[in-house]
Nucleic acid binder design. Structure first.
Lengths: 221, 221
DNA sequence: TAGAGTCCTATGACACTGTTACAGAGACGA
DNA sequence: TCGTCTCTGTAACAGTGTCATAGGACTCTA
């Protein structure tokens, strides 16, 4: 069984005299470093154990599952992202900036974003940022279902762009890559458009434009 | 080494007198059935081999990798989705309907959508539908980079909603589920909004609204 | 009819994954 | 000193993708 989550007192030297002094938090922190350094696939229990100079069962004493480990890693990253200062004159602008911040930080820590996303925990990762977004939405006059809907629509726009930005093109065989697909398609498309579809786009700019459109649609001027 | 992809002649009884008459296409079809029936996680090489009453190396003779198998499965599904008839009076409406069709069919075959998405091949899955979308965009007057940008923005809006709609909530521990998160957050949010955020939303309607907003933004009236 | 060559398949293994049963070491209270 | 609780290592289980290898089955040639 795993240790209970919240300890009553942990005054630094509380339970330090044990074997290695390994704490739940240390494991999570090491996992976070491992993911950011070597990518999401590198987060295996054995590799993490080696990194901590420990046997695998030691990790399982502190943490129940790999899933729990991942959610803990994501949560730690989420709380690190917590501090934001949203600027902007109009309420609309502030909502946009808050949304944009979710995109920026997700791209900045793409390894953990991928990990969270892969484990279906993207909402956990962005929760604090989402809370900030909701606060700005309320400041802009949206309350209740309106605020919730707007928040979800904005988040979905961000996630969509993230998925496209972070996908691993090298996973699919060369013939099935987007550019090859558009080169060989038999659809009746203008050569100019075809060429534009083949070239990689600036997803950062695209996300900004889409975000602006969605925000403008939901937030009154 | 795998057999070359395109065979010159395969007149039904062409290479039928072999051992089991197992063809590359049969494997892919069986994999497709397996995924649609038992979910993306069920697609293991051994299980697929058992399903075909064959040893695993047999599959590897026909198909190089698991990745190649997945991309082939996705491609087969993609071509099955190929036939669309887009209706609608205005060009804008037709673009919207084409986009909406991508959403609908992705939800309808959610197991394969998840598989493609997980393997980073969502673009392969939706390629034919995307081509139809681009054609409507051109009919609406967008060409070249404008068409490509609009297409990507629309697709990103769809994918974002899909990720939220198809994510597995049961994967994360109860304390970290969206509703629990909003229940325990210390952000300064109106109780009404908080309640709205906790209740599950109609993602189909949400996707429709978001899609409408993005289409309206990119396609001139 | 016999031999050669090519295509396809099965046996069994390798390295890796998450997970756990079990034994034992270290520190603590009695 | 004796237990007891907390933690850790050894070794294993079942499962994964992948492949080396041997051999069967068919077609073609002599």
């Amino acid at each position: 069984m795993a240790k209970t989550a919240a300890l009553p007192a942990s005054d630094a030297t509380d339970r330090a005299g044990r074997r290695t002094g390994l704490e739940r938090e240390d494991i999570v922190a090491a996992a976070l470093v491992l993911v950011e350094r070597d990518g999401p696939a590198a987060l295996t229990m054995r590799r993490l154990a080696t990194e901590l100079d420990v046997g695998t069962p030691t990790i399982y004493w502190h943490i129940a599952n790999r899933d729990e480990l991942i959610s803990e890693v994501v949560r730690m990253q989420s709380s690190r992202l917590a501090e934001i200062k949203v600027t902007g004159k109009t309420a609309r602008e502030r909502v946009y900036r808050a949304a944009r911040h979710i995109w920026t930080s997700s791209i900045e820590h793409r390894a953990i974003t991928s990990l969270a996303h892969q484990a279906g925990m993207s909402s956990l990762l962005t929760h604090h940022l989402e809370a900030a977004l909701v606060m700005e939405l309320e400041a802009a006059g949206l309350v209740g279902r309106d605020a919730a809907e707007a928040s979800r629509a904005i988040l979905s726009a961000i996630v969509g762009a993230l998925v496209i930005a972070l996908r691993d093109v090298s996973a699919s065989p060369p013939d099935y890559r987007p550019d090859a697909l558009w080169a060989t398609t038999d659809a009746q498309i203008t050569p100019a458009t075809r060429k534009a579809l083949r070239t990689a786009s600036d997803l950062d700019a695209l996300s900004a434009v889409t975000l602006r459109a969605v925000v403008d649609h939901f937030v009154p001027a």
